[in-house]
Amino acid sequence: MTELKEGLSESWTEIIQPRKNLLDLRLKELWRYRDLVLMFVRRDFVANYKQTILGPAWFFIQPLLTSLTYILIFGRLAKLSTDGLPMILFYLAGVTIWNYFSETLNKTATVFKDNAQIFGKVYFPRLSMPFSIVLSNLVRFVIQFMLFLLVLIWYLFGKNNVHPNLYILLTPVLVFLMGLLALGLGMVISALTTKYRDLIFLLTFGIQLLMFATPVIYPLSSVKGPFQWVIQANPMSAIVEAFRYAYLGSGMFSWYSLGISAGVTVLILLAGTLVFNRVEKSFTDVV
């Protein structure tokens, strides 16, 4: 009550305190710094392809090369099923969405370590960094998605087993879910990596493993036996399958598993926010 009295005589625009509300994302503050978020996005783009000959063409080359590698190894050598779809289309679909997810996760997970220098010297809402990562990967995703659409249209003219359908309308939802999932998971990991650096070494490996636990290089329908539940428990599985079902017309789509994915995403995002807020205030003394 005494504080209330003081508060009447003086008004403060800000109070710095040791502890704060862990669930408060302070989105209002983030909005004030929106120019900064856009700056970071811009920086990521411009800086990435400076002094390269092909420049932004790498946006297209990367997924194409990855898909070609997958065709060679998983398609031709290992002879994994592609649900009767043209291989390039099948893998390109998987690679495009998986890249978005994994890049966002990877960058978000090391956000404190990568930016310790800046964070230690100047204050801005720390969340603007993960947000900018999600956004800049989103832009990249959109560009690569265009490539996928071009290849898709090419195959639509031929006689192929490709059937895009109305579920395409779900695309924004799927992308949004993926972004949030990567953000949430990344924030959880970022908090852990600041204190226990060991996790950074595990991260690359973990993401690789997660890819194999997601139907990226194989259709969900081909998974039988004891591992099925592992793959279905993975919230990314439903998203990847739904995406492929919408655009290529094959795969397993279920509202039920997509709903569970959404639920898990929300939970992870909540946990991520909590942990991120906690670490944010003390990490400059730790990193």
Binding site: I16, Q17, P18, Y123, K281, S282
Partner: peptide, 18 residues
Amino acid sequence: LSKVTSPSSGQIKINGRI
């Protein structure tokens, strides 16, 4: 004061943009 790190105790009240 510049919010790069937080205090372990006490508080700082500020009026304006830093």
